[in-house]
Simulated scan of single mutants.
Amino acid sequence: MKILTFCFSATGNTAKIADVIEKKLTLPGAEVHKTDITTHKARKKETDLKPYDAFVFGFPEYSWRAPKEAGE
């Protein structure tokens, strides 16, 4: 199984959790590709989702809201 993870982490805390998730997903044999979308340039890059069976999107939240940058 191929899994793509997207991670928006302005302070680094969400990136740490994404690393843990990546390690846990690779234990049963999944192939995981991590993409850091914290920078504006990274968020504007197109990603082909066709080769992947699943994807995970991680971002922080504050007052039940995601940062506006995570929605770009």
Rank of each mutant, 00 (worst) to 15 (best):
M1F: 06
M1E: 11
I3T: 12
I3M: 03
L4M: 12
L4N: 07
T5H: 00
T5W: 00
T5N: 02
F8H: 06
S9C: 13
S9W: 12
S9A: 13
A10Q: 15
A10V: 11
G12K: 10
N13D: 05
N13C: 00
N13E: 08
A15P: 01
A15R: 10
K16F: 08
A18K: 03
A18T: 08
D19V: 00
D19M: 01
V20Q: 15
I21W: 02
K24V: 11
K24G: 14
T26V: 10
T26A: 15
G29Y: 04
G29H: 04
A30P: 02
V32F: 09
H33L: 13
H33T: 15
H33N: 12
K34N: 07
K34M: 07
D36T: 06
I37H: 00
T38L: 10
H40P: 04
K41V: 07
A42N: 14
K44M: 13
K44F: 00
K45A: 14
K45D: 08
E46W: 08
D48N: 15
L49Y: 13
K50N: 13
K50R: 13
F55E: 03
V56C: 11
V56A: 08
S63W: 07
R65L: 11
R65F: 06
A66W: 01
P67N: 08
E69K: 14
E69G: 13
A70M: 03
A70E: 01
A70N: 00
A70R: 00
A70V: 02
G71C: 04
E72I: 09
E72Y: 08
E72R: 12
